[in-house]
Design a protein around this nucleic acid. Sequence first.
DNA 1: TCTTCTTGCACTTTTGAATCGA
DNA 2: ATCGATTCAAAAGTGCAAGAAG
Length: 751
Amino acid sequence: MLSMEMYPSLTLGPQRIGDCFYRDRPAPAHMPMFPPAACDMAAKALPQRMLPPPPNDPTTKTPKDQVKMELENASLWKQFTTVGTEMIITKKGRRMFPGLRLKLSGLNPSLRYLVLLDIVPLDNSRYRFQGGAWQAVGGAEARLPDRVFIHPDSPATGAHWQSRTISFHHAKLTNNTLDSQGHIILHSLHRYQPRIHVIEARDVLRWGGGQHSFVFPETQFLTVTAYQNNKITELKINSNPFAKGFREDGMNSKKQRDARQKRKICDGTETLDIVNCDPCDSTDLQPQQMTSATDLQALALASLPPMPNPSCGFRPEEAPYQASLIQEQPLDLGQAFIASHMSDIGISMANGMQDMPGSEVANLIEGSDTQAYTSNFPAVQANSSFPLAPLPQSSFLPVPDSSDTSNPQTIDYTPILSSSPTLSSSSNTPLLQQTTFTFPTPPPSNSSSPQPLLSSSPSYHTMPETISPHTPADASFHAPPSQSGLQDQISAHSLLNDQPLQGDSISSASNSPIDQSSAVFIYPNNLPVNPAPVTALSNYNLPLAPSLPCSLPTHGTSFSFPSVSPHMQSFPNMSSNPSHHAFNFQNLSHQTQAFPPSSFPHPSSLPHPHPSFQPSSCLAVPSSFQQSVSSAPSMPPTAYPQNLANPSNSSYPQVDISGIPQFNPAAHYRPEMVRHHPSLLPQLDPSLPSNLPSSNPPQSLYSAFPSYPLRLCQDPHPSLSLPFRHLYRQHQHVHAHPQGSYLDMSTRAVY
DNA sequence: TCTTCTTGCACTTTTGAATCGA
DNA sequence: ATCGATTCAAAAGTGCAAGAAG
């Protein structure tokens, strides 16, 4: 279960940059960025074009198959996942607990990387905690503009990231759709999956093109405004230091609170010891306190219902509503919207910020049971005592089954425990490295094919964002008939993929229904246990993987750099290499598409195209998928360079940013400047039915979760010193509708 | 009426400034 | 004057519970 999925869904395309800050001509009065003011400023300040990385630069290539990410506190996450992780969201923003504590390896120590966190919906359902279990009760709320939290240390060298624990404990979740603090906005009672993205930045002004995305299925959670499952509350109290007061021996424990209440009632002036006020206090103390990690785990395990019949958690099989396909939601930095700190990047870089000790390193609140995912995946199989999960036999394209409406969809977290090899024995933690891709978000689950919520498939893949144009198309991946009028959009998008780097064209096809390759997920409704292999094939026409009709075309791939500090100009690379005097997003335009797993270059995959699918009991990969994988010719490891040199990228001439006023470090960015522009919200789509028959299960408010491009935006707040902190991923071309929204590839959101 | 969300409360931890002494 | 250790207070993070809102 401790699976780390890597998928090159990050799409950073220069073609979209021009839409924002980089234009062929001097910045016009209006920039399609938000906030407009900041965008205009940035547009005037930034170079007109982004430069691609130096062609055939071996140093720019980071072997993707070597990049590994470990979830340090995986066991803690597993404890929560077993019960059904709930995350409190508040208007002011709430930190995540457990937090994401990660270890990175395999990075080029000398190269710089950005580490980003985004959280994407797992399905299109809204949940309710009933009868001790979470049940899908209707369609999800309209998706809000996605935000991405950029680790404060970003950008930093690979040595920096690898020398310490990477923690995102500063990231906050909020349900305030108007949040201006840069928190990640989520809907309550929805299921989400955090994703970690590692983006290579050759230097301050150049994106190296290396993109790595990781998903830890055990980190998926349900958002709530108040804890629904008392087991989660118990776990949180016993695990979170800030909640110590609520423990049995804490001053804010139930006992103490009752005592205080009693004291208030009796006599407000009484000065009795609150402990003694409780008649049962001194003699009722529990001998053991669940404070240690061992105790916590014991607690979690003890509190778990019987495996076969979990008393709590999700029960997907009971879901009344068919989870519609959730498209992979690639992180599109092309539309990245940086809320703040952009101006500080240059300074930080110049000062060697990457060497600064991360504040997160000291964070030891959470356990450090690191789960390593390396190329030793086969070991999982050997060590795994869990039976293989039944592979979906259904077709790739999940079809909503109205008959299932009678059965509320519930999600059972319990299976994850058994399915996770690491949980049983951390020492035997399988090292997983795969050459296949998994989808960040599972396709809609088929109620008829219930799968464990967290099918703990130890399939964590390291995939190159790009593959060789010679990558054979896998017949097993067939794009489902497009629906909802998206066909044209998709088609147009496919055409664009052929020329991803041309001007303002929308290059990314990562989110096309194809991309989702949902076909590989028979159901999941849970994390891609056995995620379908996905890779960036934006520049190549590959067979479209089956996906739900809701699948939407990918987002644009523009990446706008609001500002660059003058310090950047002094950056060694920049000075030494004139070509570096420009932002390079060339390689960030990788497109994610479903493709045969065998196409992935990892050597280990050659003998075993999908070793990850075999060992884990949670592998929900359709047999057809595996077959296709095995049948697909193996691709040479070197066939898919991380940085795919694309001559077309050179269309962006070098730009000397020196003298650009906006690069002044004095320019600051303020989160408050980032607000939800109306245009960012889904627009009503008159073409879609406004009402659904009451007899039918509630439809998702949105047909699918298209990829939402990121937009970078300057944050003029002077007080913020953290560089590159937030990216706001905004909906692009999304038409909201009471029942859903869809991407409009023909138009582009203008902020 | 029920469910969900908001808000205030009490508690804890974290953080940074202030203080003190070597 | 500098440095390190200690103290203190403010800020921030918790869950709980009552009440409000839909």
